[in-house]
Simulated assay, not measured.
Amino acid sequence: MIELAHGESRLGVLPETGAALAFWTHRGVALLHPVADPNLADQHGQAVAAYPLIPYSNRIGDGRFSFGGESFALAHNFVPERNSIHGNAWQHPWDIAEQGEDYVRLTFDHDPSSPAARAQWPFAYHAALLYRLAGDALEVRITVHNTDRRPQPVGLGWHPFFPKVAGTRLGFDARSVWHKTPDGLPDGRLRCEGEFLYAPPRTLDGVDIDHCFSGWDQLATLTWPPSATDEGRSIELAADALFGHLVVYVPPGRDFFAVEPATNMTDAVNHLDIADAGMTILDPGAHVGGVARLTLRAG
């Protein structure tokens, strides 16, 4: 593990575990919440606090899609689902390209020449990920270059987990949310109202949600109440306009939740006819990238 430091902030980075984060703390208080997910076998039981979603966010239905006149079948990497999830960059060790006291730049090259690698993603790409501590903020910069000889569809995302206690609040404004089938795939767009309305911020007490929002305003606020051992705090999650979607995952009865900026809607590669599906078609040699930033505020 690499440990970065800036002022009173500490960041643990796990290059060997898909460029995931192990922790982010400030004055010893955990700002992210490590989670071990047995369904993600390639994380090898490691509890991770955040990880990149490359070259797509969320699910591809049955792991199948067509593009450029070809049909592709991906490996099912999220047992027991038949869908493929979150790309394949999280499944591999990354290389350390550059490192300083408060930053690290990691890289990963995907070569689909073997059948197993092709089943993860059929196009070659180069990914770069920068983690940087700056003041009371964590900056995450993700870039993907198309190193294939043909165009390919690319989506990006970042999957942080946060601690959830009684009274934790979440706020953001979005135009719509995708209703989903029981297997997590989109089957219709809804207005953000009722249980899907997070403007103004609302408590997460009793919330059960795992949905993709579209057209959010690029800023989410997460607020924790004060306690006997914690003065309370808030985090502002801001993202470049490229990240036009926000996945909110609040499992009932658990002590964590996720708020994930992403460029693409769920199963976007099978919905390229939707104007804001969010997949970028990269020509050979082209690249796409953006920044998400978490900024700590006093309670």
Results as ranks from 00 to 15, higher is better:
128 A>K: 13
129 L>D: 12
129 L>M: 08
129 L>C: 11
129 L>K: 07
130 L>N: 09
130 L>F: 12
130 L>Q: 11
130 L>W: 11
131 Y>P: 08
131 Y>W: 10
131 Y>F: 10
132 R>G: 13
132 R>P: 12
133 L>H: 12
133 L>V: 15
133 L>W: 13
134 A>S: 15
134 A>G: 15
134 A>C: 15
135 G>P: 09
135 G>R: 02
135 G>K: 00
135 G>N: 05
136 D>R: 14
137 A>K: 01
138 L>N: 04
140 V>G: 05
140 V>D: 02
140 V>R: 03
141 R>N: 11
142 I>C: 05
142 I>F: 06
143 T>K: 13
143 T>A: 15
143 T>S: 15
145 H>R: 14
145 H>P: 09
146 N>K: 07
146 N>P: 11
146 N>E: 07
146 N>W: 03
146 N>T: 05
147 T>H: 13
147 T>F: 06
147 T>E: 14
148 D>F: 12
150 R>E: 10
150 R>W: 06
150 R>N: 02
150 R>Y: 02
151 P>M: 04
151 P>Q: 09
151 P>V: 00
152 Q>N: 02
153 P>R: 01
153 P>G: 03
153 P>F: 03
153 P>D: 06
154 V>A: 10
155 G>P: 08
155 G>K: 04
156 L>D: 06
157 G>Y: 06
157 G>H: 03
157 G>A: 08
158 W>Y: 10
158 W>A: 01
159 H>W: 11
159 H>E: 00
159 H>K: 09
160 P>A: 05
160 P>D: 09
161 F>P: 03
161 F>Q: 10
162 F>A: 08
163 P>T: 10
163 P>V: 12
163 P>E: 13
163 P>Q: 12
163 P>I: 11
164 K>Q: 15
164 K>F: 11
164 K>C: 12
165 V>R: 14
165 V>C: 14
165 V>T: 14
165 V>G: 11
166 A>R: 13
166 A>D: 11
166 A>W: 06
166 A>I: 08
167 G>W: 11
167 G>D: 02
168 T>A: 08
168 T>S: 05
168 T>I: 01
170 L>D: 03
170 L>K: 03
170 L>G: 01
170 L>T: 00
171 G>L: 01
171 G>W: 01
171 G>T: 01
172 F>Y: 05
172 F>L: 05
172 F>A: 02
173 D>Y: 12
173 D>L: 15
174 A>T: 00
174 A>F: 06
174 A>W: 04
175 R>Q: 09
176 S>D: 15
178 W>Y: 12
178 W>M: 02
178 W>V: 02
179 H>S: 15
179 H>N: 14
180 K>F: 03
180 K>G: 04
181 T>E: 07
181 T>V: 07
181 T>N: 06
181 T>K: 09
181 T>M: 05
181 T>G: 03
182 P>S: 02
183 D>Q: 12
183 D>P: 07
183 D>N: 14
184 G>R: 00
184 G>L: 00
184 G>P: 09
185 L>Q: 04
185 L>V: 10
185 L>P: 07
186 P>A: 04
186 P>S: 02
186 P>T: 02
187 D>T: 03
187 D>G: 10
187 D>A: 13
187 D>Y: 09
187 D>E: 10
187 D>V: 04
187 D>L: 10
187 D>W: 07
